[in-house]
Simulated scan of single mutants.
Amino acid sequence: MTMPRWTRARLGMVPAAALALCVAGCGTQHVGDAADGNGSGRPTPPAAATPGAQVDFPCPGETPKSAAPSPSSTAPPTDHYAENHGFLVPIELHGQNRCDGLAVVAKVKKVLEPLRRRGDFDPDKAHTALTGLGYSAGKVRAYQNGSTGVGFLIDIGAAPWCVEGTMDSATTKADAFAGYPDGTGCEPAKGGH
């Protein structure tokens, strides 16, 4: 039985592709190189140069934080609560977006602080104060949070996407984040898996 010409051509492509991969190589480490890549005097690329890596740096006015201790156990949790509720965890901001988010949070706290000091926890007044920062009335939600507090959510529409927080007699808290996994805008998804 004879093979059609196009089948022979395709079969010939497989060894050619494998040969190309072998010639190109898969990495940059060579025989005699140290594990850190400095055996031949070539510099090791910094971790920040890795595609997709997000670099955080101190933002203006920010006090550097010490590194959080890493968890001592790498064993997976026995229940899947965290995995199943991951859609409720906000997406963190990194790099310049994080700095921009911190700046927005400072503005939000500054405009709400006079209301908090007066004990004025009216959601309509909080809404008016937040829209006074230039945010569209339709993108700002303020609501009663417990008997003596106000909660708020601002959909910025650009990075940072969202600012969420609370104001009560003790403090005004706010956080900037980039939405929720599987959510729409600044709203988390209605269910997980």
Results as ranks from 00 to 15, higher is better:
residue 66 S to G: 09
residue 98 R to S: 03
residue 57 F to E: 15
residue 92 E to G: 04
residue 92 E to Y: 05
residue 67 A to H: 14
residue 131 T to Q: 09
residue 45 P to V: 08
residue 35 A to V: 13
residue 81 Y to G: 11
residue 1 M to N: 10
residue 75 A to D: 15
residue 156 I to K: 08
residue 90 P to N: 10
residue 103 A to T: 10
residue 1 M to D: 04
residue 186 C to I: 07
residue 129 A to V: 09
residue 124 D to G: 09
residue 140 V to M: 00
residue 67 A to N: 15
residue 191 G to Q: 15
residue 127 H to K: 06
residue 39 G to M: 03
residue 169 S to G: 11
residue 109 K to M: 07
residue 158 A to M: 13
residue 182 D to L: 10
residue 130 L to M: 11
residue 164 E to P: 01
residue 84 N to Q: 15
residue 113 E to Y: 01
residue 73 S to R: 03
residue 131 T to F: 03
residue 86 G to Y: 00
residue 107 K to S: 09
residue 71 P to I: 10
residue 92 E to I: 08
residue 1 M to K: 10
residue 117 R to T: 13
residue 39 G to I: 06
residue 149 G to V: 07
residue 92 E to F: 12
residue 63 T to S: 14
residue 9 A to L: 15
residue 131 T to G: 01
residue 57 F to M: 04
residue 103 A to W: 07
residue 60 P to E: 15
residue 124 D to V: 10
residue 159 A to P: 03
residue 94 H to W: 02
residue 183 G to V: 00
residue 166 T to S: 08
residue 33 D to N: 11
residue 99 C to S: 10
residue 104 V to Q: 05
residue 47 A to D: 15
residue 77 P to Q: 05
residue 8 R to W: 08
residue 165 G to T: 07
residue 69 P to D: 09
residue 104 V to P: 02
residue 133 L to D: 11
residue 36 D to K: 00
residue 7 T to V: 15
residue 129 A to S: 13
residue 59 C to T: 00
residue 28 T to I: 10
residue 42 R to S: 02
residue 75 A to P: 03
residue 62 E to G: 07
residue 36 D to A: 01
residue 130 L to C: 02
residue 190 K to C: 07
residue 145 N to E: 15
residue 58 P to C: 03
residue 21 L to W: 11
residue 70 S to Q: 13
residue 114 P to G: 02
residue 32 G to V: 06
residue 54 Q to K: 14
residue 80 H to A: 10
residue 185 G to S: 09
residue 155 D to W: 00
residue 111 V to D: 06
residue 43 P to S: 04
residue 162 C to E: 09
residue 43 P to M: 09
residue 155 D to T: 14
residue 68 A to L: 13
residue 76 P to F: 06
residue 139 K to D: 15
residue 166 T to N: 10
residue 28 T to V: 07
residue 34 A to Q: 05
residue 169 S to H: 09
residue 191 G to L: 11
residue 94 H to M: 04
residue 37 G to S: 07
residue 11 L to E: 12
residue 72 S to I: 13
residue 93 L to Y: 00
residue 5 R to Y: 05
residue 48 A to N: 11
residue 160 P to L: 03
residue 94 H to Y: 07
residue 1 M to I: 12
residue 27 G to D: 08
residue 175 D to V: 04
residue 131 T to W: 08
residue 98 R to L: 08
residue 150 V to I: 11
residue 52 G to L: 08
residue 172 T to G: 02
residue 135 Y to A: 09
residue 163 V to F: 05
residue 95 G to L: 01
residue 115 L to H: 01
residue 100 D to A: 05
residue 9 A to E: 14
residue 124 D to K: 08
residue 12 G to T: 04
residue 133 L to K: 00
residue 23 V to T: 14
residue 166 T to A: 04
residue 117 R to Q: 12
residue 49 A to C: 01
residue 77 P to S: 09
residue 80 H to L: 12
residue 169 S to P: 00
residue 40 S to L: 03
residue 56 D to N: 13
residue 59 C to F: 07
residue 99 C to I: 01
residue 111 V to R: 03
residue 29 Q to L: 14
residue 140 V to C: 01
residue 168 D to W: 00
residue 31 V to D: 11
residue 85 H to Y: 03
residue 43 P to N: 10
residue 121 F to E: 04
residue 59 C to I: 08
residue 41 G to N: 13
residue 79 D to A: 08
residue 180 Y to I: 01
residue 46 P to T: 13
residue 108 V to I: 05
residue 90 P to T: 03
